[in-house]
Design a protein around this nucleic acid. Structure first.
Lengths: 131, 131
DNA sequence: ACAGTAATGATTATCATTTTCAATAAATTT
DNA sequence: AAATTTATTGAAAATGATAATCATTACTGT
């Protein structure tokens, strides 16, 4: 994998964010620094970076894919209204990880994908009047 | 929700299967009984039937959606090569369900989606020589 | 600096799904 | 049962996210 300015920039901008942007959201951000970059390049690079484990691809729940600059395994929660994804940091999740680790060999599975779902604070407000 | 022959047929054919077909797979099957049915009708009805809980919509993992005629909550495992989905029936999964039930309120989440992943027997064979 | 490989930007293609809309069918009212 | 209202259909086109193409440009190792 060659070093290119666009790959570097995409990676940098993603790592600045904790918002788990979609490819097109990140495209808009990167365009501010590189107005000539193309959407295809962003897709390609996100795919490659995820492939080699530098970033995380979040592709659950029949929605647009999102990307996470933090490749360390951790859990996510997605708002079922707006689709936004947030990181989960909670002691009790260790229990879950252990449970799954035990389960995988029993099921003959390679891995498990888990995604928690809620309605995020912003969307809850919008539901009750505002909008 | 009105009673229509197409809705009835779609539902019946889905319930005959344990293969969790995609909308277009089920379309091909239903077309044998109703050659004039349109793909849009299949999509629409699957969506509605899932909405009101008669069937299950499986929309994880950035792939085509699949549908399950059995609406009772149960776990699935998806082949990462061909995308086929099978039901999981395993005692130890109870433990997982309990763990998640405990976790949800702690996380302020409404629900969790879990999907196990493997390479199915058919695809394993294909990998080693054949095809 | 050069040859070979990989990546880019721009565009077009793909694929699953959704929407549109006039025609038809089901349900409800009279 | 006829009339009216409402929902659903088939066929087609539209959408939206992503992937593929391809000529041009940028890296990389020698």
């Amino acid at each position: 994998m060659n070093k290119t300015i666009q790959r570097q920039t995409i990676c940098e901008e993603l790592c600045k964010l904790t918002s788990h942007p979609t490819a097109d959201e990140l495209y808009d951000i990167v365009k501010k620094r590189m107005p000539q970059i193309s959407l295809g390049t962003v897709y390609r690079n996100l795919e490659q970076l995820a492939e080699c484990g530098v970033i995380l691809k979040l592709e659950t729940a029949g929605r647009q894919k999102r990307f996470d600059g933090n490749p360390a395994p951790h859990h996510h929660i997605r708002c079922k209204v707006c689709g936004a994804v947030r990181d989960l940091h909670h002691e009790s999740l260790k229990e879950l990880d252990e449970c799954i680790a035990r389960l995988l060999p029993e099921l003959g599975a390679n891995r498990a994908m888990i995604e928690f779902e809620d309605i995020c604070p912003e969307c809850k407000i919008d539901h009750h009047g505002n909008k």
